[in-house]
Amino acid sequence: MDANKAKAIRYYLGESQARFAKRIGVAPSTVCAIEKGQRDITDYIRAKLLRIESGLPDDFYTFYNRFRKSS
């Protein structure tokens, strides 16, 4: 799990940083810092993100591949 994939998950879900932060139990500033590459993803956050990712439909990976190419 890296910052780009975390951001892609948030975009895929159509959530603001504030809403996504609430979903994973961190401050919005933490989500912002992760997405900007200013903060590492802790094991706690990684576990939350992996749990969210595991519940996403297969078309997320198509979305993610396009997202990576455009970033």
Score class of each variant (00 low, 15 high):
I41D: 01
E35R: 07
L49M: 09
R39D: 00
F20D: 07
T62W: 12
G25W: 04
R46M: 00
F20Q: 08
A18C: 07
E35N: 05
R51K: 11
D43Q: 10
A3E: 15
D58F: 10
R68H: 00
I34V: 13
Y64D: 05
P28N: 03
Y11M: 14
L49I: 02
K36V: 05
R23M: 12
T30M: 03
A47Q: 12
T62S: 06
S29E: 09
D43S: 04
T42N: 06
A3G: 06
T42L: 02
D40Q: 05
G25I: 00
E15C: 14
T42Y: 01
V26F: 07
Y64M: 01
A21L: 05
R10H: 03
R39A: 05
I41R: 02
D59C: 08
T62L: 14
Q17W: 04
S16M: 14
R51M: 01
V26A: 02
S70N: 10
G25H: 05
S29F: 03
Y61V: 01
T62C: 04
N65M: 00
N4G: 00
R10M: 08
I9S: 13
S70M: 13
V31M: 11
A33Y: 04
M1I: 12
R23Y: 02
Q17C: 12
D40A: 06
R39T: 00
Y44P: 00
F67M: 05
K7T: 04
N4L: 04
G37H: 12
L56W: 14
A33D: 14
G55L: 09
K7A: 15
Y61L: 01
A18K: 15
S70W: 07
E53Q: 13
A3V: 02
R46I: 00
C32H: 06
Y64W: 15
A21D: 02
R51D: 13
A8T: 02
D40W: 05
R10V: 02
S16K: 08
R23I: 00
P28H: 06
L49F: 03
V26Q: 11
M1W: 12
G14I: 13
K69M: 07
K22P: 00
Q17I: 09
R68W: 01
F60H: 11
G37S: 07
V31F: 02
A33P: 02
I24A: 01
V26M: 15
A8S: 13
S54G: 14
Y64R: 02
T30K: 05
M1H: 08
S29R: 12
I24E: 14
R10F: 00
F63S: 04
K69E: 10
G25K: 03
L50G: 08
L56E: 10
G25F: 00
K36L: 11
I9Q: 12
I9C: 11
V26C: 02
Y12W: 09
P57T: 13
A27W: 00
L56G: 14
S71L: 13
K7Q: 15
I24G: 12
I24K: 06
R46H: 08
R51Y: 07
D59T: 10
F60P: 11
P57N: 15
E53F: 04
E35P: 09
M1G: 05
E35H: 08
R51P: 03
K5Y: 01
A33S: 11
